[in-house]
């Protein structure tokens, strides 16, 4: 019982800390692509840790449902990030001078030809 509580506490607190770090990045980072980075990776990890911490304390069926929610987040986060990045690029939210390598621009130009 004690061991389970300790595992739950560690998972919940670390997950919430990762969520907070992601939100901090969302506020502090300068432009949309960097904010996208903060919004997907730490948030997903934080949510997974919190879900795992909650699943430790629940019955098996509910814990499986929490796992389903975590799996869904892992699947959808890259899809959303891809979509956000593409639209951000095409609407001019990415500053071209900041980019080191711009493969999408080359490909778009090749398509136009």
């Amino acid at each position: 019982m004690i061991v389970r509580d300790v595992i739950c506490a560690v998972l919940l607190l670390s997950g919430a800390l990762f969520c907070l770090l992601g939100a901090l990045g969302l506020v502090r980072f300068p432009d949309l692509p960097t904010r996208l980075q903060a919004a997907t990776k730490p948030q997903t990890l934080g949510l997974l840790l919190v879900l795992a911490g909650a699943a430790v304390r629940l019955e098996l069926g509910d814990a499986l449902a929490l796992g389903l929610a975590g799996l869904f987040q892992v699947i959808t986060a890259p899809v959303l990030a891809q979509l956000f990045g593409g639209v951000a690029y095409r609407t001019g939210a990415c500053e071209p001078s900041v980019l080191v390598l711009d493969e999408l621009d080359e490909r778009l130009r090749a398509d136009r030809r």
């Binding site: 919940l12 919004a39 909650a54």
Partner: peptide, 22 residues
């Protein structure tokens, strides 16, 4: 787009909060 992204993050936080409540 920044606002939509923030809304998405907020919903993830809500899911996490519901899990903690459970």
């Amino acid at each position: 787009l920044d606002r939509v992204l923030a809304l998405d993050v907020l919903l993830v936080l809500i899911v996490a909060g519901v899990a903690v409540g459970m």
